[in-house]
Amino acid sequence: MKKLFKIAILAIVIAFGVVGCDEKKEFGNIHFDRDVCEHCKMLISDKLYAVDALVADKHYYFDDIGCLIEWSKNQKIELENAKIYVADASSGEFFNAKDGFWYGGFLTPMNYGFAAFKKEQNNGKKVYKFSEVINLISTKPHSHEMHKAKHYMHDKALESKDKAHGKTLENADENLTPKHINDTKNSSQKDENETLKNQSKHEAH
Rank of each mutant, 00 (worst) to 15 (best):
A204N: 10
A11W: 02
S200F: 00
A204Y: 10
V18D: 02
G92T: 12
L196M: 06
M153G: 08
V133W: 04
S91C: 11
H39E: 02
V51N: 07
M153Y: 13
D35P: 15
S90T: 15
G66Q: 02
A56L: 06
V19H: 13
A157C: 06
D22Q: 13
D64L: 07
E132Y: 00
D63F: 13
H154S: 09
G124D: 13
T177A: 01
L136D: 14
D63C: 14
K148N: 04
G28R: 15
L54K: 12
K201E: 13
L68G: 05
I69N: 05
S90D: 14
V86A: 10
I65K: 00
K119G: 03
E26V: 03
Y60K: 12
Y152H: 14
C37M: 07
W71H: 06
A149P: 05
A157N: 09
D57V: 07
N74F: 05
N186I: 10
Y128R: 05
K118I: 06
N175K: 03
R34Q: 07
K119E: 11
E145H: 03
L107C: 08
C37V: 08
H202D: 11
D183Q: 02
K140W: 07
K140S: 09
I9Q: 00
T139G: 01
G20R: 09
P109I: 12
K119M: 12
V133H: 04
I77A: 03
E145P: 02
K41N: 12
E80P: 00
V18P: 13
L107I: 15
G113M: 01
K118H: 04
D191C: 04
N122M: 05
I84C: 00
M110C: 08
V51L: 12
A149H: 11
K24F: 02
K185Y: 09
A50Y: 06
M110S: 10
F94L: 03
E159L: 04
K201V: 02
N123K: 13
L176A: 03
A56E: 11
Y112L: 03
S131C: 04
F16H: 10
K76Y: 08
G92M: 09
